[in-house]
């Protein structure tokens, strides 16, 4: 499923794995989210695993992108689960996060 800046792979019935690439440009988030959700809906996805393995830090801008994607996934009845969050990323995110995020978190894909 070719969407610029990400790898989207089906990993089981209704489950999808999203791996962000270095070329991911979250500046154009509107089009990106639309493309992702279109694919997920076409494939009848119920859960989206977002792999944060290569992300050492999550700043407010990146969190905003994750929050928007999770929000839109929820409206499409797709649960978003962030996996492989790095200790440094968890540390920085916990510093500015005030409430519970809209996405779930897990160590890895179960």
């Amino acid at each position: 499923m070719a969407i610029a800046g990400i790898h989207l792979t089906r990993i089981g019935r209704g489950n999808f794995l999203l791996e962000p690439l270095r070329s991911l440009n979250i500046g154009g988030w509107e089009q990106l989210i639309q493309d992702i959700v279109t694919v997920l809906q076409q494939e009848h996805a119920t859960r989206l695993y977002y792999d944060l393995n290569d992300l050492p830090v999550i700043d407010p801008v990146y969190y905003d992108w994750l929050d928007k994607l999770a929000r839109i996934c929820l409206t499409a009845n797709i649960k978003m689960v962030c996996i492989n969050m790095q200790p440094t990323a968890a540390f920085t995110l916990s510093k500015f996060l005030t409430g519970k995020p809209l996405f779930e978190t897990a160590l890895s894909v179960p």
């Binding site: 962030c82 996996i83 968890a90 540390f91 916990s94």
Partner: peptide, 12 residues
Amino acid sequence: IQMVRAVQLMGS
């Protein structure tokens, strides 16, 4: 609380 939150963010 931040520590608890960070642990939860890592999926634990």
